[in-house]
Design a protein around this nucleic acid. Structure first.
Length: 574
RNA sequence: GGACGCGUGGCCUAGUCUGGAUAUGGCACCAGCCUCCUAAGCUGGCUGUCGGGGGUUCAAAUCCCCCCGCGUCCGCCA
């Protein structure tokens, strides 16, 4: 059983290389393994670095190493070319092992050995002031996918949403719902609490621009809330809960669910933020300016207009990052590894949090995945001014587009079936479109790109899956007797890619970067589509047909697993 | 002024950590492929000073330095 075929292959090659090094009496060099260009082999490494030890040209080095290498467990031969050592896998031997492993492990293929560590993964944590826009959804999609990757990698993962129910923004919103009447507001685009309530928020900020007395009212309310006045805290929480309900239902549409919600106000109510403040005040870097306390971070390498990190207001109440420190101390007690998914605007805040932990003598640190903002061709998105593309709208448009495509291709399907497929395809496209880009790249959202279902998209991958299902419905046998028959270049290429899936999960989990999972799923689909063209299944001779049927089954299994790990469903037909 | 990130064909993007073979794919565009398992597919073509300049190296998209452009932050907001 090969749980992680590619790891076995790499270990084998490293082993063979080490023996060759010993034979040639050269010092061991851990040269990274690479993939050679098409046709030159399956796995390779450059031999340039041996030229000093062997006193030879790179070409000669490669020759001499190759001649000292044996075939090991999984290789048929090694070749020297232009200073590289190119190794060829013995597919006749490996293919049956890979196919049998995937068939017997099924959805477990790509799952790594269970780990002891508990992970607390914070993501989304968007302020409950209105509906989620596509920029914020990047957080949820990356976070939810990362949780799925880490679970598959064997960790015990709990996801958590930090709900902001304190501070000025929420006070403004709460005041607005109590003091602005419905008829002053534009009609809501949807009958959904987050859409209904955001209008009050936007109206309040409009009023605040000219009304200075309201400013005073708000300041007073913020103060009272921060001191823990119960009535206000209850009102804020009630509004937050309503908006949260709307946001949570939107997230559920794209397959994002969270295990836990942590209300920020609880750090004030349970006294934990007070303890943080007292502890920070004892630091030698703590100073006071007119009663407000701050840490001087100039000596810690923070420079700029102001290197002071204020952790209390002049009235002694806490500030956001102070509460976040309290929250993190609590998290550390509940897990072994704390991971955050945050917008890149939070970088300084996390740096300040880290330095504050230093000064408090706390050893643990959160690991953070930062992502860049999504903007529109017209500029930034802003909930306050309403210049956003809402996730609800994107989901609707994407589903509608998908329904149109299904109707065009499969007019015989029932309306219910069409709707069901369009739902899966539309929401899958939304997730994949965000997921495929590495997180630090800013995204300029364009409708025509978001609604494109060709090429490197979720529908492409889902379509490959539907094709595989279609073959399997018609192929009588999904297990063959002789997988050695799978020797066509397109078959070998497909087996090669299938064998790497566990390694992809391992790499994504290790780096906390999930975009390469999207590339993998695309590559697998692409390989399958070439196999589909070149290797007929149901019309092949019985033995070959059964072996190919098994390969299709393997592809289906891994496509489903990789899509599932991205939170994308796989339709049986489309 | 300071900090961090990004810059790869007309547009989008992989590779950058860990330097190595003619830089990965997609969209768009052009030309082909459905009497044959779903053409949301496949094949071929067209597009490249890897932002610019210097340096290190046998070898730089990748490492170092300087510069330019874009994004984000530098609040007793969250």
């Amino acid at each position: 059983m090969l749980r992680d075929p590619w790891a076995e292959i790499e270990d084998d090659l490293r082993d063979i290389r080490r023996k060759a090094e010993e034979k040639l009496a050269v010092e061991h060099l851990d040269i990274p393994l690479e993939t050679p260009p098409e046709g030159l082999g399956d796995i390779c490494f450059p031999a340039f670095q041996y030229s000093q030890a062997l006193e030879a040209s790179p070409e000669d080095c490669a020759e001499r190493i190759v001649s000292a290498m044996d075939t090991g467990e999984y290789f048929s031969k090694h070749e020297a070319a232009r200073g590289y050592v190119n190794s060829f896998i013995d597919w006749g031997k490996l293919t049956p092992q890979v196919v049998e492993s995937i068939l017997s492990l099924g959805p477990e293929f790509g799952g790594l050995e269970p780990k002891d560590e508990r992970i607390l993964l914070e993501h989304t944590s968007v302020n409950p002031t209105g509906p989620i826009h596509i920029g914020r959804s990047r957080n949820s999609i990356i976070g939810d996918t990362l949780a799925r990757v880490l679970r598959r990698a064997g960790y015990d993962v709990t996801t958590e949403f930090l709900v902001n129910d304190t501070g000025r923004q929420m006070v403004v919103l709460t005041w607005a719902t109590q003091n602005i009447s419905e008829d002053e507001l534009p009609k809501a685009r949807r009958d959904k609490d987050d859409h209904l309530i955001v209008r009050y928020y936007q109206k309040a900020y409009e009023i605040l621009e000219s009304d200075t007395t309201l400013e005073k009212t708000i300041e007073d309310l913020v103060l009272r809330l921060d001191r823990g006045e119960e009535k206000i805290a209850r009102d804020v929480k009630a509004v937050a809960e309503k908006v949260m309900e709307g946001m949570v239902s939107t997230l559920k549409e794209i397959g994002v669910t969270l295990d836990s919600y942590f209300w920020e106000s609880s750090t004030i109510l349970d006294g934990s933020v007070h303890e943080v403040i007292e502890s920070l005040k004892r630091s030698e870097n703590a100073h006071s300016d007119a009663g407000a306390y701050y840490l001087d971070l100039e000596s810690s390498g923070i420079h700029g207009w102001d290197a002071r990190f204020f952790f209390t207001r002049k009235d002694g109440t806490s500030l956001y990052t102070t509460r976040d420190i309290a929250y993190h101390l609590g998290k550390f007690k509940r897990c072994d590894i704390a991971i955050n998914v945050l917008g890149e605007d939070q970088k300084l805040g996390m740096k300040q949090l880290t330095l504050a932990l230093d000064m408090m003598g706390v050893e643990k640190r959160p690991e953070t995945v930062f992502y860049a903002f999504v903007s529109l061709p017209t500029g930034k998105m802003s909930t306050r001014s309403g210049t956003t593309v809402l996730l609800d709208d994107l989901i609707d448009e994407s589903r509608a587009r998908a329904a149109e495509e299904v109707k065009k291709r499969r007019p015989e399907l029932s309306p219910e079936r069409i709707e069901s497929i369009a739902n899966i395809v539309g929401t899958g496209a939304v997730r994949y479109n965000i997921l495929r880009v590495q997180p630090e790249k800013k995204i300029v959202f364009k409708w025509e790109e978001a609604l494109n279902f060709d090429g490197n998209t979720a529908p492409f991958i889902q379509y490959s899956h539907a094709r595989a299902c279609s073959i399997l419905r018609k192929a009588p046998d999904r297990t063959g007797k002789d997988y050695g028959l799978l020797a066509h270049p397109a078959e070998i290429r497909l087996v090669n890619t299938l064998s790497r899936f566990p390694a992809v999960i391992r790499n994504c989990a290790g780096s906390l970067r999930v975009h390469s999972l999207a590339s993998y799923a695309y590559d697998l689909s692409s390989d399958f589509n070439q196999f589909y063209r070149d290797c007929g299944v149901i019309r092949a001779e019985p033995e070959l047909r059964d072996a190919r049927g098994a390969l299709v089954e393997c592809t289906k299994i891994v496509l489903v697993s990789s899509l599932d790990t991205m939170g994308i469903q796989a339709p049986e037909e489309m």
